[in-house]
Design a protein around this nucleic acid. Structure first.
Length: 318
DNA sequence: GGGCCATGAGCAT
DNA sequence: TGCTCCTGGCCCG
């Protein structure tokens, strides 16, 4: 569920918690036992996101990379000692409750020679594929669609298949504009194609097309180049904001009205921020089928396209 | 305790 | 286009 903004948050979180530190790597569930053994004891030397792909580099010498992909329901959860940097408790599938940071202080009397409270990580909860343990924090991965150890060369090959990522500084918008413009495939499908643009998922697709006023079923090559470019620029703003705040919010303030009848609520990682935009005010069309469009009042439509639900306003998007 | 669902994607057909 | 895999929360009985 995690769209690209989530993965960039992850990359930052790992840097904060573990950068430069040797890690104990294990697979409590057992399904990654071999890979864990290869990485165990190595130092974390890099933490990178490209779209929904997440890469952790492990030294020494030529780094080996742990490539993970959260898929639809993967998540990382974190716990730390009281002296660990403050990070979100969990990042990934939104069904997870984002509560207070889980701290597990040690016994009251004992203090280790460094002056820190002794700390022991909590037991793994659920199907933990990988556990990364540093001296004052632990990260558990559940439900990934991909989890493997690869070389730098293999990492480059994965990246070569990805389109530009609006959150990355090195992204090339021209590649996106060209890809959309040369294809008859609908722009709705193109936005979900990670080779066209990396990191966009079902929410950003629906919302960016609404904000651009573009019918998702229009062939890419029929969308004016300036409009495609504007979609890119909008994705840059929306996705960087999502990475910063941990939640997708695409509505402008003047369009935010609560909807008691909204059919589903999407929980978001807002770090408990009281100023966070409520989930039922965050989107224009995503999960709002049957509800009136926030701009024109026309009921929002939904249709299954390539196995995913597509949401749009037939009046505002042409 | 069973079925359904989800912000995803690879592969067979 | 249709399977399949990954996990757990929620709804229903």
């Amino acid at each position: 569920m995690p769209e690209g903004h989530t993965v960039h948050r992850l990359a930052r979180t790992f840097t904060t918690l573990f950068d430069g530190r040797p890690l104990r790597v294990s697979s409590p569930q057992g399904r990654f036992a071999d890979g864990a053994a290869v990485l165990d004891g190595r130092r974390l030397v890099a933490s990178e996101a490209w779209g929904k792909q997440f890469f952790l580099g492990f030294g020494e010498g030529e780094p080996l990379w742990l490539r993970t992909h959260l898929g639809l329901y993967g998540a990382w959860t974190f716990a730390g000692a009281p002296d660990a940097p403050e990070v979100a408790h969990a990042i990934g599938a939104p069904r997870r409750r984002i509560g207070e940071r889980e701290t597990t202080p040690g016994g009251p009397a004992a203090v280790d020679p460094a002056g820190h409270e002794p700390w022991a990580p909590p037991p793994p909860r659920g199907q933990v594929r990988v556990r990364l343990l540093g001296e004052h924090a632990v990260a558990d991965l559940t439900g990934p669609t991909a989890c493997e150890v690869i070389t730098g060369e293999e990492k480059a090959a994965v990246e070569a298949r990805l389109g530009p990522d609006p959150i990355r500084d090195d992204a090339d918008p021209a590649a996106f504009v060209a890809a959309v413009g040369r294809s008859r495939v609908t722009v709705g499908q193109q936005l979900m194609d990670q080779a066209v643009v990396a990191g966009v998922g079902n929410i950003y697709r629906a919302e960016a097309l609404f904000r651009a006023g573009v019918d998702p079923l229009r062939p890419g090559r029929d969308v004016p180049e300036a409009v495609v470019r504007a979609i890119w620029d909008d994705l840059v703003v929306l996705m960087r904001d999502g990475a910063e705040h941990g939640a997708i919010v695409t509505t402008r303030p003047e369009h935010r009205t609560g909807e008691p009848g909204a059919r589903r609520r999407t929980r978001q990682n807002t770090d408990g921020n009281p100023d966070a935009v409520p989930a039922d005010q965050a989107f224009y069309v995503y999960h709002r089928d049957g509800l009136p469009c926030r701009v024109c009042g026309t009921p929002v439509l939904v249709k299954e396209l390539a196995g995913r639900n597509l949401f749009w306003c037939p009046t505002c998007q042409v």
